[in-house]
Design a protein around this nucleic acid. Sequence first.
DNA 1: ATACGGTTTAACCATTTGGTTAGTAAATGT
DNA 2: ACATTTACTAACCAAATGGTTAAACCGTAT
Lengths: 197, 197
Amino acid sequence: MTTEEKIFNAARIVFQKKGFAGARMQEIADEAGINKAMLHYCFKNKQLLFEAVFMNAFGELAPQINDIFNSEECVFDKIKKFTKSYISFVIQNPFLPAFVIQEMNNNPEFVMQFFNNEKRPNPELFLTQIKTEIQAGILKPINPKQLLLDIFSMTVFPFAAQIMVKGIIHISDSEFNQMMEERKTSIAEQIINSIKK
Amino acid sequence: MTTEEKIFNAARIVFQKKGFAGARMQEIADEAGINKAMLHYCFKNKQLLFEAVFMNAFGELAPQINDIFNSEECVFDKIKKFTKSYISFVIQNPFLPAFVIQEMNNNPEFVMQFFNNEKRPNPELFLTQIKTEIQAGILKPINPKQLLLDIFSMTVFPFAAQIMVKGIIHISDSEFNQMMEERKTSIAEQIINSIKK
DNA sequence: ATACGGTTTAACCATTTGGTTAGTAAATGT
DNA sequence: ACATTTACTAACCAAATGGTTAAACCGTAT
């Protein structure tokens, strides 16, 4: 593993746990097991290191989502695939959703510029497809944006609020993961059931 | 408005926007229109000021939720009431969910101690009630904790991820609020529909 | 062997930040 | 009227923090 990779991984861990403002360059250096000056040697400054981590995290997920939403499949299949692959991905990166929400909230200007990127999640095609399937009589006449919000909510929220969820319903890490495994299929079933005519 | 109130309100605004780590005492003082030393005169230090804000925010919401979940009503009515009153509350405090998730994530030790408080959201009774209604044949045989998670997800997520949501599906503040108004009833309808036998 | 390039570090610096202090102004009690 | 507490501020301080520098280290080509 190159030094740059060591730093990057350390930065991902620390930023995801503490956020941009809470993260300390020294802590990242310690986590990477190298001298703090190397951070600046490799990534210039905190902001750029952060951007590298954020872009990577988000940029890995967005194309996956877009591939699914922009494929040729029907709405039902897209919902099934999305929930399954999103949950699989996030189980491997459990702090990602809370991290993205946090930085979105603290630093909207920076994050927003990122939404003009081609790597951003772009559900336009999916939304028009929903309209089409409603007109075709496949789906009940629901608001496409509400449907999309439902899908995201059911999928993302448990991870974003992971710590709170564990605290409120009193479950361990393994019970949590087991519940998320269940959700890989149960979310799609429930949503499809509620919108199919 | 007393000076203490001015500080408290200013602190709420700044903490909710920037989080604990990102908030600056000077910024809070400026927002309140008073000298920075007053913050320490009234609230001792940053941590205590933050705790006051956090406890207040969470402590206002938790009893409302508990009142609903611990009432004598049936599961369906509880779901209806919860979504409606939660959304009403959060429309007035739009940054609260993201704020809570953020601090939960950054500072789990502190927040967890708060979950032994009697003011915490306590869904135990609601969970057993769900089991009872399943055995009574009113509800389909679902996992009560998954149901609770569904309810929270659909209700809380759109607010927690507000800024991202607005960016991804391209809606204005007023469109967002209108969608949330719709959700006051639509979430309950959908969930009830998916669990009633 | 040695000069040279990139890599890595210890020590240092400037600024920011939470917090303190000492003193002033304004109520409040006597 | 005067003393005393309370509310408030400007100036200051120590620690933390992001960032820099100059020197050391190390592989490698000459």
